[in-house]
Nucleic acid binder design. Structure first.
Length: 230
DNA sequence: CTTGAACAGCAGTCCTACAA
DNA sequence: TTGTAGGACTGCTGTTCAAG
């Protein structure tokens, strides 16, 4: 069997390198592709269309929380995505699970645990820290899912426009960033508004940011879920 | 799906004229 | 001098349609 292909997405070079090490520990034959932004993730997925796994940081340039996860679920449904984040709030972990991630690894987890989680996911299992039983979805989680489905329906170009829109860029600036004309951006924005079921760009930005993760949710204090080795 | 062009509507800015 | 109303202009946004 050929080696595994893994996409490691994290904007922090040091942690990306550590994560790469953990992946190579779990899969010595792995071919690792690194990405440091939401845009780079898109490029990586295009470059390695048959990747076996993607580890995804929630906070990267061009990414608003779970928006990249939602996009990947919609455009690359066969690619398993494991969220790797400093945020350890149980509600965030549950959101990741609800939105289609196959695993969630706190950055505080030791390399062996990260490696074991990766192996579990590649074996077809899931790898989430124990957050306690909570079988029913809250209304907020149901709304999250509906929003994620809409974002998942966006094309790659539309998703890119949405992320730049969320950064506060004007159509002209987005056009410059993407190397197309302003008219093209307008057409994309119209399509985005239609798919997200909103009436203007401000509402679209608000919608995109609903999938963001609040910094205060980073579990630096209080009870943290325990990542247990199988 | 992506891109571009044409068009209409809206909001903000600038300038001018006029009254208090 | 100051404040305000009105018009022209400009920039931005959003829609629609057509072509590749």
């Amino acid at each position: 069997m050929a080696g595994h292909a893994v996409i490691v997405a994290d904007d922090h070079p040091l942690f990306r390198s550590a994560l790469r090490g953990a992946v190579e520990q779990a899969l010595p034959d792995a071919q690792v592709t690194e990405a440091d932004s939401a845009q780079a993730v898109q490029a990586a997925v295009r470059m390695v269309p048959d990747a076996d796994l993607c580890t995804l940081d929630l906070r990267m340039p061009g990414a608003y929380g779970f928006s990249t996860l939602a996009f990947l679920r919609g455009n690359h449904p066969s690619l398993p995505v494991v969220i790797v984040s400093a945020v350890t709030d149980p509600s965030v972990i549950r959101r990741a699970e609800t939105l289609g991630a196959v695993g969630y690894i706190p950055k505080s987890a030791p390399p062996q645990v990260i490696a074991q989680s990766i192996q579990r996911v590649l074996a077809g299992d899931t790898a989430f820290p124990d957050t306690g039983a909570n079988p029913t979805l809250s209304p907020a989680e149901t709304a999250d899912q509906a929003l994620a489905e809409r974002i998942a329906s966006l094309t790659p170009q539309q998703f890119r426009v949405l992320t730049l829109l969320a950064d506060g860029l004007l159509n002209k600036q987005i056009a410059y960033e993407m190397n197309v004309t302003e008219a093209t951006i307008k057409a994309h924005v119209t399509a985005i508004l239609r798919k997200l079921k909103v009436s203007n760009r401000t509402a679209a930005v608000i919608a995109a940011r609903k999938l963001d993760v609040d910094d205060t949710e980073a579990g630096l204090d209080g009870a943290q879920p325990q990542m247990t080795a199988p």
